[in-house]
Design a protein around this nucleic acid. Structure first.
Length: 557
RNA sequence: GCGCCUAUAGCUCAGCGGACAGAGCAUCGGUCUUCGGAACCGAGGGUCGUGGGUUCGAAUCCCUCUAGGCGCGCCA
């Protein structure tokens, strides 16, 4: 664990102990302690950390907050990293860090290198992040890109936070939508070969299906026409599906998203997962038969109504698959925590799935579902339809071609998953000059350039004395750089990757400001060496932040 | 009708129980211009959707209402 995080936890412990000591001495009534939180005050004069514990204790004890704060502070022996503990009205306890301790932390960043920002909160706990998981019945669009960026970033952060992480794409290669896909493809295939064929009523109308058919015709000619229809449809379908999956993988790779596991829905049935899961649920009395269908009902577990698992015609619903899938995740593969990232249109599915988990006798807390709100694509004022079924779409791949991968990722990461967003292609391109993406990356390139200069001049700063870093711009930069482990902790706790994007911008801002005020490579060799160490440390932190976001940290731009 | 998400500066969004509500863009004004000006500094701009409530303290928690998005299938 980094020094800064260790210190944070130490301060919380000191505060906690001081309160119980005060209680033993009778200075404070024996009320239960509220959670001790340390925050970073907005204003520098309030110190590096602030605690409102005394304010909170005032409520339960009926005492004056300022007096409580003074009592608590009186019982704390300040650790060596702290220069001052102050009590400020109406009852805040503020901690100031020692400048020379701050400066010494530059060495810690340097020593940690690329590993700076890694923490051990996960303690090797096993986490699965499942995301995108789009039906392979059409190309990916921007909305899927948001899920991909969210998921891959979260996986990066969780791994850095000490979790054992596995990413997964759940491939719906079974079910009625695949069926419709196959029949659509067959129709397009026939049409492509000059045969009159009618599109299925529930077919996919997009022109990409026509392209897919002609691609197959180019390779396989009319070979599928020679088979009887009931053989041709699935055979052709398999070929089409494979091509679709390849396309999806390529688009994701363009976005910098890779999966450890591609999990087949069909395999749940082939490998008996479905039967095992259903047997368990039946044992628990959660399965019933009615109106010719099989239902899952768990009103006792908070579900308001029952849902069909097996249709009247004997075919399982997607809900059946999801039951088996989650049984597999928790029971067979034994993930400690499973994170699913779903689009807003799946929101209603969350309570149902939690009920299933509970019915399997698994703590539903272990399933975390992140709902990412919908993305609408627009070009200026023109809205672009994204419905796969009804027509043509702009694919994710086209968007990345147009906007670029880094910009695309940053754009998605710059807002919380909770808020809907418009992805305006015109704006994304027009803004590319003063886009925050470039602002952040520019900071990194600038640093690289300084280090290059130092190297050209043959400056060896390995012996630099960081205690020479004492001015405000230098210390501000150090403070900001030292925040990374905390950001990792926050993101891993809240599962909200957008904090990274804001942090990256903040760090870049503080660096640019430092750069303006402090000449790094100068006549003063000793100071130059110290500042080069700081610059190098900043580069490490900035690069790590960018990499966590799945972005590049360019040496030049 | 019910459920979930959203409403904060002109625009796009952070902040989600604490000390004077922030950033980017846009607008206006300035800087240095020997390490990358894709930079820096400053200014203006906000009844935090509405109305109640809880609290020493609310943008933040609870309730009402309004507006927008998404759901509420033997689709996924």
């Amino acid at each position: 664990m980094s020094g800064i995080l260790r210190l944070r936890h130490a301060l919380i412990k000191l505060l906690t102990e001081a309160v119980s000591e005060a209680q033993q001495q009778g200075k404070l009534p024996a009320v239960t302690l509220p959670e001790v939180l340390l925050e970073h005050p907005r204003y520098a004069e309030h110190g590096d950390y602030a605690c409102s514990l005394a304010l909170k204790l005032a409520r339960t004890t009926g005492l004056v907050p300022l007096a409580i704060a003074k009592d608590i502070v009186g019982l704390i022996t300040p650790p060596p990293e702290i220069s001052q503990i102050a009590v400020a009205p109406p009852g805040f306890i503020n901690f100031m860090l020692k400048d020379n301790w701050l400066a010494s932390q530059v060495e810690e960043i340097l020593a940690a290198g690329d590993g700076y920002g890694s923490i051990d909160m996960g303690r090797g706990s096993w986490v699965q992040v499942e995301f995108v998981s789009v039906n392979p019945t059409g190309p990916l669009h921007v909305g899927h890109g948001r899920g991909g960026v969210l998921g891959s970033t979260l996986a990066n952060v969780l791994a850095s936070a000490g979790y054992k992480v596995e990413t997964e794409y759940y491939l719906n290669d079974a079910g009625s939508q695949i069926d419709a896909f196959q029949r659509t493809l067959y129709a397009r295939y026939q049409q492509g070969l000059g045969t009159d064929a009618e599109m299925p009523a529930d077919g996919y109308l997009g022109s990409y299906m026509v392209d897919l058919a002609s691609e197959i015709i180019a390779q396989e000619k009319d070979s599928f026409l020679k088979l009887p229809e009931d053989e041709a449809v699935p055979a052709l379908g398999r070929v089409g599906l494979a091509k679709m999956v390849t396309q999806i993988k390529a688009a994701l790779e363009q976005l910098g998203v890779k999966f450890d596991v591609w999990f087949s829905e069909q395999s749940l049935y082939d490998k008996g997962q479905y039967d095992k899961a259903m047997a368990r649920l039946s044992q628990g009395g959660y399965i019933s038969q009615r109106e010719g269908a099989v239902w899952f009902g768990a009103t006792a577990l908070g579900e308001d109504k029952a849902n069909v698992v097996v249709r009247g015609d004997g075919s399982p619903t997607y809900f059946a698959s999801d039951i088996a899938y989650h049984y597999n995740k928790f029971v067979e593969r034994k993930f400690d925590t499973v994170i699913n990232i779903w689009g807003a249109d799946h929101q209603g599915h969350v309570p149902r799935m939690k009920a299933v988990i509970a019915a399997l006798d698994i703590n539903p807390e272990r399933l975390k579902v992140i709902i990412s709100q919908l993305v609408t694509l627009r070009r200026g004022d023109e809205l672009i339809r994204v419905s796969k079924r009804s027509g043509d779409i702009i694919t994710l791949s086209e968007v990345i071609d147009e906007v670029g991968r880094d910009a695309c990722r940053f754009f998605f990461l710059a807002r919380s998953a909770d808020s809907q967003m418009d992805f305006d292609l015109e704006l994304a391109k027009k803004q590319s000059e003063d886009n925050p993406v470039y602002y952040v990356q520019y900071a990194h390139a600038r640093i690289a350039s300084i280090l290059r200069l130092a190297e050209e001049r043959g400056i060896d700063f390995s012996g630099g004395d960081v205690s020479l870093l004492t001015t405000e711009p230098e210390l501000s930069l150090i403070r900001k750089a030292l925040l990374l482990p905390e950001i990792v902790e926050v993101v891993a706790t809240t599962l909200e990757p957008h904090h990274l994007a804001y942090y990256a911008q903040d760090l870049a801002t503080v660096f640019h400001s430092f750069y303006k005020q402090c000449r790094v490579v100068s006549e003063d060799e000793v100071l130059s060496q110290a500042r080069l160490k700081l610059v190098k440390a900043t580069q490490i932190v900035l690069a790590r932040t960018l990499h966590l976001m799945g972005m590049t940290a360019p040496e030049r731009m």
